[in-house]
Design a protein around this nucleic acid. Structure first.
Length: 188
DNA sequence: GAAAAGATTACCT
DNA sequence: GGTAATCTTTTCC
C-alpha cells in the first residue's frame, strides 16, 4: 500500500440498500476499531443477512429495548449480548441488519476472528458500542475492499433456530476465518 | 414477578 | 458429538 492506511470510508448510501446486497458486498471490506491501544482491523470474510418477515431476526416483532439500534440510520452498529459474548451487526434498512460473522486479522493483529463472538473479542467491540454510527463516528468504521475478493459463496445461516433453510449467509470460499456449521464436515 | 430462550463458545466424554 | 457456562431480553401469568 503506497498510500495511507485508510484511503476511504464506506458512506451511508452503501448501507442504504437491500440487506442481502450489503451483506455480500461487505465481504472483503476492512472493519477498523479505534481503541485505547490503537486501531485494530480485520478483513470481513463472512456475513449473514437478517431481513423483514424473517423469524430469526431480532426485529421480527418490531422495536424493543434491545433492538432499537436496528431502527436507526443505515450504518448504525447493532451490538447485542448472547450468553457471555457479544455480536455486532450493521444496520441497513429499518429493522434489517447484517451480522458480522468472520474476519481475518490485519496489520499484525493476533487471534481468531472466526465466529461473531470471537470477531468482537478480537476487535474489542463491546456492548457499549451498540448504537454508534460507523459512517461518521470515530470509534468504528469500514473501508472499501482494497484487494481482490475470493470466490463468494452463499449458504444457510449458522446458529439460528428459525428459518434455518434460508440462504442468507455469505462467505469467502476457503478463508480460514470463516466459521463452519458444527453439524457435519460437508462444505456447504 | 417469574420462567424460558437464545444470531455462542469452550470444554467434556 | 454433547453439554455446561452465564446473563440479558422477552414473554407469559
Amino acid at each position: 500500500m503506497g498510500r495511507s492506511a485508510v484511503t476511504a470510508r464506506i458512506q451511508r448510501a452503501f448501507f442504504d440498500r437491500p440487506t442481502r446486497r450489503v451483506a455480500r458486498e461487505l465481504l472483503g471490506t476492512t472493519c477498523w476499531v479505534r481503541g485505547g491501544a490503537g486501531v485494530r482491523s480485520v478483513r470481513i470474510v463472512e456475513t449473514e443477512a437478517y431481513v423483514q418477515d424473517d423469524p430469526a431476526n431480532h426485529a421480527y416483532r418490531g422495536p424493543t429495548r434491545r433492538n432499537r439500534s436496528m431502527f436507526e440510520r443505515p450504518g448504525t452498529l447493532y451490538v447485542y449480548r448472547i450468553h457471555q459474548v457479544v455480536c455486532a451487526n450493521v444496520v441497513t434498512r429499518p429493522g434489517e441488519a447484517v451480522l458480522l460473522r468472520g474476519g481475518a486479522p490485519l496489520g499484525g493483529l493476533e487471534g481468531s476472528g472466526s465466529g461473531p463472538g470471537r470477531l468482537c473479542r478480537l476487535l474489542g467491540v463491546n456492548i457499549h458500542d451498540d448504537g454508534i454510527d460507523t459512517v461518521r463516528g470515530s470509534r468504528i468504521g469500514f473501508a472499501p475492499c482494497a484487494d481482490r475478493v475470493g470466490r463468494i459463496r452463499i449458504g444457510p445461516r449458522v446458529g439460528v433456530s428459525r428459518a434455518t433453510e434460508r440462504r442468507l449467509r455469505y462467505f469467502v470460499d476457503g478463508d480460514r476465518a470463516v466459521s463452519r456449521p458444527r453439524r457435519s464436515s460437508a462444505l456447504t
